[in-house]
Amino acid sequence: MSNKFEKFAATCGFFFKYFISFLFIFFTYNLFPQENIEFQATFNNEATKLNKNYSIRKYHFNIKKLKFYVSNISYYNRKNDEIFTDEKVYLVDLNNPKSLKIKSQINKKSQLYSFDLGLDSVINVSGSLGGALDPIEGMYWAWQSGYINFKIEWESNMCSNDNNQFIFHLGGYKKPYYNKRTVLVKKRHIHRLIFNLNKFLKKINCDRQMIMSPSLKGENISNLIVKSFEFKK
């Protein structure tokens, strides 16, 4: 008799423990909800897919690659008026849906402040680092050391010539071509960071369809990329 009771009590205790942990997790989750930041690329207001044909008036576009480094994601904590930075480096690749979502520090007290497109010079001169920074990712220039910060390749008939290919590999960590760009967000409740391809492509001209090393043209394209970002809740 007492044996049965003990078993019953033990089972109750067992479930009770789980119940408490559940409550704990539930409340902490609600107190400090961890929200993702999500990168997107859009074409005509829809999420862009690689290797899909899009058109704007008589021109067609087909994005082949879109891949870039994001670093120094910074958050502003309203409560104690402080900015803090995530030291991790992320490689965002449209070809890898998982890479588009980044676990953020956004919660009731803190909001997204800014992020960097590309990598700083220290990373660029630190040798082999592995992980997202492994040259196997195809984001490293071996012949002249340095990371590619932003890679976009597409095909389009937008120029009146036979060449449909556009290849922009943007990078550089030394003056005069220090290519890393900071994108300021500074708005509350922002989670979605959208690279608006319509905005970007509208400003591309046909004077150079290929950029494969640090250059003035590359710097201008990078400025255009920053301006093509939009922020949504």
Partner: peptide
Amino acid sequence: GAVNHLDMQSLVPITDSLEMGNSLDNLL
């Protein structure tokens, strides 16, 4: 001085089409 770190130097001959002509994926 094109290469800024010894670790990264080997990438050049391994992938250079005039030297070892390999891809990094194929090497691994």
